[in-house]
């Protein structure tokens, strides 16, 4: 290995190389069509959200199973500390006995308390409204878990192996629903839970852009309305519920 040749990597080339993400198509072996991604990064003006119809949501667990399979979230056979990105919650009105079952995950708040309390800035909200943990800077203090009124976050207590490539997870960091950010960044418009709800469940979930008035989720919200859990906190979550 020669040490005398200085790598020709100017600052400018380094930065443009980073921002201009390149996609390519294979025409034939060895020949590629190179094209720059027209839209690199988060979709401008978007705010991703979920609408869950609790009138339709039944007793099934398809969304939980699909989410945990998609993101490689496995059980350690220790239910008190196992990570959960999404869980089914059953609520019963004591006066009438009327009960409901609904999935609860990170509500992707507009004003997330987890971001307010994070001492390192690891808990953050992306421009398209997805609340994430930057595990490169997370120190595992768990303030965000205490601040979250939805108990949406989990801490990883144990050394993990065999993570899935698109969902890095590791001991000593906090994690939660990412709204399937790896799918959204690919341009997909469905999450694992919504997909499973339509194929295996009761079709109670809709994913979409809350800021786009023509999206299915916005049309349904405009027509039928949707409630936020703990709306009194004024967090304006991106996950909305019907029939609560």
């Amino acid at each position: 290995m020669s040490h005398d040749s200085t790598p020709d990597l100017s600052r400018r080339r380094f930065i443009t190389g980073a921002v201009g993400a390149v996609a390519s198509l294979t025409v034939a072996p060895g020949i590629f069509l190179m094209q720059t991604n027209a839209q690199a990064g988060t979709k401008p003006g978007a705010r991703w959200g979920l609408l869950i119809n609790t009138n339709v949501c039944g007793d099934c667990n398809a969304c939980v199973t699909a989410c945990h399979k998609e993101n490689g979230v496995g059980s350690m056979n220790r239910p008190t500390t196992d990570a959960q990105w999404i869980r089914k919650v059953n609520i019963t009105d004591r006066a009438t006995g009327h009960s409901r079952s609904l999935p609860v995950m990170c509500q992707h708040c507009e004003h997330p308390p987890c971001v307010d309390v994070c001492p390192t800035g690891a808990s953050f909200r992306r421009a398209d409204g997805i609340v994430l943990v930057n595990k490169h800077t997370c120190i595992g203090c768990r303030y965000c878990m205490m601040a979250c009124p939805y108990k949406a976050r989990s801490f990883i207590h144990e050394h993990l192996t065999d993570q899935v490539p698109h969902a890095p997870r590791g001991k000593g960091t906090v994690e939660s629903c990412t709204l399937c950010v790896h799918r959204i960044d690919k341009g997909e418009r469905t999450t694992a839970c919504v997909e499973a709800c339509h194929t295996e469940g009761n079709g109670a979930m809709v994913f979409g852009d809350l800021n786009d008035p023509n999206s299915e989720i916005s049309r349904r919200l405009a027509e039928y309305g949707g409630a936020a859990i703990r709306a009194d906190l004024g967090l304006n979550p991106g996950v909305r519920y019907q029939g609560l």
């Binding site: 380094f14 980073a18 993400a21 690199a40 990064g41 992306r126 421009a127 930057n134 960044d185």
Partner: peptide, 23 residues
């Protein structure tokens, strides 16, 4: 410089969704 590429672009990917599969 592989560590510089990875380190710089990890922030781009995580914070801004700018993903460059080649790096």
């Amino acid at each position: 410089d592989h560590m510089k590429l990875l380190s710089h672009e990890k922030d781009q990917a995580v914070l801004f969704g700018v993903r460059n599969p080649n790096h």
